[in-house]
C-alpha cells in the first residue's frame, strides 16, 4: 500500500540541499511544456505533488522517473522555482541507493568511466560511401587515459550517499 514516508521525503530534501519543498501551486506550467508528456506520459507537476506529500518510496520504485528527457524546460518555466527536473534526479539517486531497477545504460556508463574515464567506447565510423574511419585515420590526437589513481577516487565519490 502506498503511504507517505517522512524519512524518505527528508532524504530528497537533503539531496536537493533544501529545508523544505518550494510552494508548488499546481499551475501545470511544467507539465504543459514537458518534452516527455506526450510520448511517455511524464507529468512533472504530479511528481512534485507526490513528493511533497511524502510518496517518495513509491516514486523511487516507479519507472516514471526514468522518462525525463532533461530538457530543463520545467526548471526554466516554473514560477515557484520548483525545479521538477532536480527532484526527478534526486529520486533517481534514491532509486539507485535502494537498488531499484535502473536502466542498464546508466550503469554501463558508470562502469565505463571506472574503466577508462569516458562514459562511451571509442567507435569506428562508417561513412555514406562505406569507408571506415577512426581517430588515427582522421589524424585526431590520441586520447590520454587517466591514471589508476582516478579510478580509486571516482569509486570513493560513488560511495558517497549525500545524507
Amino acid at each position: 500500500m502506498a503511504e507517505p514516508n517522512e524519512a524518505s521525503r527528508r532524504k530528497i530534501l537533503v539531496k536537493l540541499g533544501r529545508d523544505e519543498f518550494l510552494d508548488c501551486f499546481q499551475c501545470l506550467k511544467c507539465t504543459s511544456g514537458c518534452t516527455a508528456l506526450k510520448l511517455l506520459e511524464l507529468k512533472p507537476h504530479e511528481i512534485m505533488k507526490l513528493v511533497r506529500l511524502g510518496f517518495v518510496n513509491e516514486l523511487a520504485a516507479s519507472e516514471i522517473i526514468w522518462t525525463c528527457a532533461t530538457c530543463l524546460k520545467c526548471v526554466q518555466r516554473c514560477p515557484q522555482k520548483g525545479s521538477p527536473y532536480h527532484v526527478i534526479m534526486a529520486l533517481r539517486n534514491l532509486a539507485v541507493e535502494r537498488e531499484a531497477k535502473v536502466p542498464e545504460a546508466y550503469l554501463k556508463a558508470v562502469s565505463q568511466i571506472l574503466e577508462n574515464g569516458l562514459s562511451q567506447t571509442i567507435q569506428k565510423i562508417t561513412t555514406r560511401k562505406m569507408e571506415t574511419f577512426d581517430r588515427t585515420s582522421l589524424k585526431l590526437p590520441k586520447i590520454s587515459a587517466p591514471k589508476e589513481s582516478f579510478q580509486a577516487v571516482f569509486f570513493k565519490a560513488l560511495e558517497e550517499k549525500q545524507e
Binding site: 539531496k15 534526479m89 534526486a90 533517481r92 539517486n93 539507485v96 535502473v102 545504460a105 546508466y106 550503469l107 556508463a109 558508470v110 568511466i113 574515464g117 569516458l118 562514459s119 590526437p141 590520454s144 587515459a145 587517466p146 591514471k147 582516478f150 577516487v153 571516482f154 565519490a157 560513488l158 558517497e160 549525500q162
Partner: peptide, 27 residues
C-alpha cells in the same frame, strides 16, 4: 589547448549519484 587525461563531465552519472557527477565536473 587540450586537457590531459580528461574524463567524463559527469552527465550520465547525475542520474546515479549527483555528488560523484559534481566531482567529475570539478575534475
Amino acid at each position: 589547448v587540450d586537457l590531459r587525461e580528461a574524463t567524463c563531465c559527469g552527465d550520465p552519472v547525475k542520474s546515479i549519484n549527483i555528488f560523484a557527477a559534481d566531482y567529475l565536473a570539478a575534475r
